Amino acid sequence: MHQSGAYQSPVSSASFVVRERDLRGEPVGLDAAPSAVRVELLGGARTIGVTVVPAEAEPATASLAGAERTAVLRDLDATPGSPELSLLLYMALQRPRIWQRTAVVSAEPSLAPMQLSPLSQRGLRAAPLDVAMHRLFAACDEAGRALLTSRFVAEAAACLSRQAERFADNAWCRAVRAGRLAREQYVAALANTHQYVRYTPRLLARAISVCDDEPLRDHLTRHFRGEQKHDRLIEADLRYLEADVEFVLHAMVPWGPTLTFMSLQESMVAFHCDLACFLAAPFVAEGLAARVGPLVLDDLADNIRRWGYREPARATRFLVSHVREDGGDDGHWNATLVVLARLLRDDTTQQRFLAALHLASEAFTASYDAYADYLTLFTRPLLADP
């Protein structure tokens, strides 16, 4: 699942080049697992650098309460008061933000823009990650902020890549790979998916109606046209599996985790009218379909045959169509990346989008866990005959 080079965008400007390497000197993708990374800014009067480390991997901080939610900055090599310092520190802290850390700690004396507070541990100071990054972004000049915003889409994609690893290991996907998915567990996934897919065109229409940004409105309109009648594909899949389609259409209530995923996108477009954050839900759903879908489709077909259905393609029309349409260089997900590159233009917008992204990803993963875990009584015993 890890794609170290897929979203790593070497960032340069007329003045600076960013270099990010592990302690062996090898390049490290933004979506890499938490580990010590040396971040360097080449240009200006000299090369400056700092190392960012997960707090639990650092002897001086491993015993801190909440170390697993904290990152450490150490080995700062920069002139105190250097105008490029805020730029360097912000780029270094993008990694803890991808790791979903919530605090930063350091014994370095020259981190003034972050306004760290002393801890009881001797020599250590700390700050919440969100406010530290806000202060660093504000301290950069216009050229520095432009360099940082050019990294925002790569950061969001790296967050999704790490979430995709978690999604690929949910209970439903594990059951598929093990050949132990029950028909009822697959029907539950399709039925719950129908609960929000049937509203997607209406949500997009709502977004179009409140959008004053013409290029964004054009993107939403293209997406609207591409989402027509996808609920009919789910209904056809359900009918082939002899499920109760009338219940799904007229009486079913989405399960709690599914409702959480639905509520996020509904609130962003209908209450907040925040169209950048509204895009977080399709960014997640389409991104996970493009990444994880190809890994499970063959195994899913084998499960369906095991249930006695000889034509698995007639039960997977919806999933196959989304793997095809959402993936690839010209897929829905890549089109969303292009739009986000224009919308994510400051730290507050980025932090808000990433919060929505993680909430959507966690709800989406929890929903698939539920489709398996709520119906484990239908799972065949390990020693049962095929």
Rank of each mutant, 00 (worst) to 15 (best):
H2L: 15
P10Y: 04
S13V: 04
A14G: 14
S15N: 09
V17F: 05
P27L: 15
V28R: 00
A33H: 07
A33M: 07
V39F: 07
E40D: 03
L42K: 08
A45G: 08
T47M: 08
I48E: 01
G49H: 01
V50S: 01
V50P: 09
T61D: 14
S63F: 01
A65D: 13
L73P: 07
D77Y: 04
S82E: 15
L85P: 10
M91R: 09
R95E: 06
R95L: 11
Q100R: 13
L111M: 13
Q115G: 02
L124W: 14
A126F: 04
C140W: 08
C140K: 05
C140R: 01
S150D: 09
R151C: 11
C159D: 02
S161M: 08
R162M: 09
Q163F: 11
Q163I: 01
R177Q: 04
V197Q: 09
R198E: 12
I208V: 15
S209A: 15
D212P: 04
E214Y: 02
D218H: 12
L220M: 06
T221C: 08
H223W: 09
D231W: 04
R232E: 15
I234H: 04
L238W: 04
E246V: 11
V248H: 00
V248N: 00
G256V: 09
Q265M: 10
M268C: 09
V269G: 04
A276S: 13
A276M: 03
C277V: 03
E286T: 01
A289Y: 10
L297A: 12
D298G: 07
L300C: 00
A313C: 11
V320T: 15
H332V: 10
N334R: 15
V338N: 14
Q351E: 12
L357D: 00
S361W: 02
E362T: 09
A366T: 06
D369K: 03
A370D: 03
A372P: 01
Y374E: 13
